[in-house]
């Protein structure tokens, strides 16, 4: 399959080809790629793309995947409506 047709980030429609293009341009940390491509910033918060991108970065840098840091994990763990937070609702998500 052509890497232009392989979606790595489903939240922001980022393809493998785009990841490889920015890696080749020197954006070789997850945080760098996140800032340019929005990977890890969508509703799934990187649950789909994080490990896939880690492997790509590791392959590019010729390192072990465990040696590559992924993006910072941030609250919340799941999307919650602002209204529900404001009202202090239970079972809000």
């Amino acid at each position: 399959m052509n890497d232009k047709d392989i979606l790595i980030c489903r939240c922001s429609d980022v393809t493998l080809a785009e990841i490889r293009k920015w890696l080749a341009a020197g954006y070789t940390s997850f945080e760098d790629l996140k800032r340019q491509l929005r990977v890890g910033m969508g509703p799934c918060q990187g649950q789909t793309c994080a490990e896939l991108i880690r492997k790509e970065i590791a392959a590019y840098l010729k390192e072990r995947p465990e040696a590559v840091a992924i993006h910072k994990t941030r609250p919340l763990t799941i999307g919650v409506k602002l209204k529900a937070i404001a009202k202090g609702e239970q079972d809000e998500s």
């Binding site: 509703p43 918060q45 941030r74 919340l76 999307g79 919650v80 602002l82």
Partner: peptide
């Protein structure tokens, strides 16, 4: 670090000023 207090105050403030935005889901804070 992110705080729950901010999330609480921010949600209350935006719901007061821009009620429609209260329908949206927060996905991340920093």
């Amino acid at each position: 670090t992110s705080s729950w207090r901010f999330l609480d105050e921010m949600a209350k403030t935006v719901c007061e000023i821009l009620p429609r935005v209260g329908e949206l889901r927060v996905i991340r804070q920093w």
